[in-house]
């Protein structure tokens, strides 16, 4: 190693040290990693999807250093309140029930109707068995209808239940199901009218974490204002147009 490489390396090292010294607060972003296209674990084992891009952009704008972690959907709220991570960014609709336990930023994805998906030639009769993911707004809604609710831990398992005939239908966010219906070559289809259940999708933060919530809200504002958010929604959701 000659003297110049040494100097160059020292300079690079100083630069990285300097960067870490001024770098902002670390924020751990909690997501499920099993809900494409919102969030999923790609083949490189990294978290990917619409929310990954939104989250990274928000962190850049709010000058936060973000680390991504996955957590099972069922225990995603308790693990936020006990401090294992600082945000929930996992396609979580803002509901009053959840708002009592945690706080939400403003929405970064508009309210999305839920839809029933069945095997292509099937009908949805009264008392049919309908699958939904545990602790989702759809599971809560189904309990108040005439259908028999079966719950599964992951969204993927609800789809598999319809394919195998274990359930007659699945009720889930239309934006999640759309791609599955498209990819099924006519095997699966939507049925019935869309149902509006929850509010928009927001980032969950601890109720005591007002500062982080304000920073994220400001960053979402700026992404809405310059159109980057609408562009990301169009990119991940098949050209969907949203006016923010």
């Amino acid at each position: 190693m000659n003297i110049f490489t040494k100097i160059a390396m020292a300079a690079a090292l100083a630069a990285t040290l300097g960067a870490t010294a001024v770098s902002a607060q670390t924020v751990r972003m909690g997501t499920e990693g099993a809900y494409p296209p919102f969030n999923f674990v790609n083949d490189n084992g990294e978290i990917d999807g619409f929310e990954r891009e939104v989250g990274d952009e928000l962190c850049a704008r709010a000058n936060l250093e973000c680390v991504w972690v996955t957590n099972e959907w069922d225990s995603i709220i308790p693990n936020l309140t006990s401090g294992n991570y600082d945000t929930i960014i996992a396609g979580m609709s803002i509901t009053e029930e959840r708002d009592q336990v945690i706080d939400f930023t403003q929405e970064y994805f508009p309210p999305d109707p839920s839809r029933y998906m069945v095997l292509a030639d099937a009908e949805l009769s009264d008392g049919a068995v309908v699958a939904a993911q545990t602790a989702t707004i759809q599971a809560g809604y189904l309990a108040s209808t005439g259908y028999t609710l079966v719950e599964f831990a992951t969204a993927d398992e609800t789809i598999a239940a319809v394919r195998s005939g274990e359930a007659d239908a699945v009720l889930a966010d239309a934006s999640f199901l759309a791609e599955i219906v498209d990819a099924s070559n006519g095997e699966l289809a939507f049925t019935g009218d869309p149902v509006s259940i929850g509010g928009g999708v927001g980032i969950g933060v601890r109720e005591s974490d007002g500062e982080l919530k304000d920073k994220l809200n400001a960053a979402i504002d700026s992404m809405k204002a310059d159109g980057t958010l609408s562009a990301l929604i169009a990119k991940w959701f098949d050209g969907r147009e949203v006016s923010y």
Binding site: N42, G49, N79, E157, A160, I180, A183
Partner: peptide, 25 residues
Amino acid sequence: FLLGVEDIVYWARELGGTKIGLYSY
């Protein structure tokens, strides 16, 4: 998995689930 340790059953379920076109494979 309750403690965030990703064990073999977690990965089997994650890898085995239906993969739509967003994934490379």
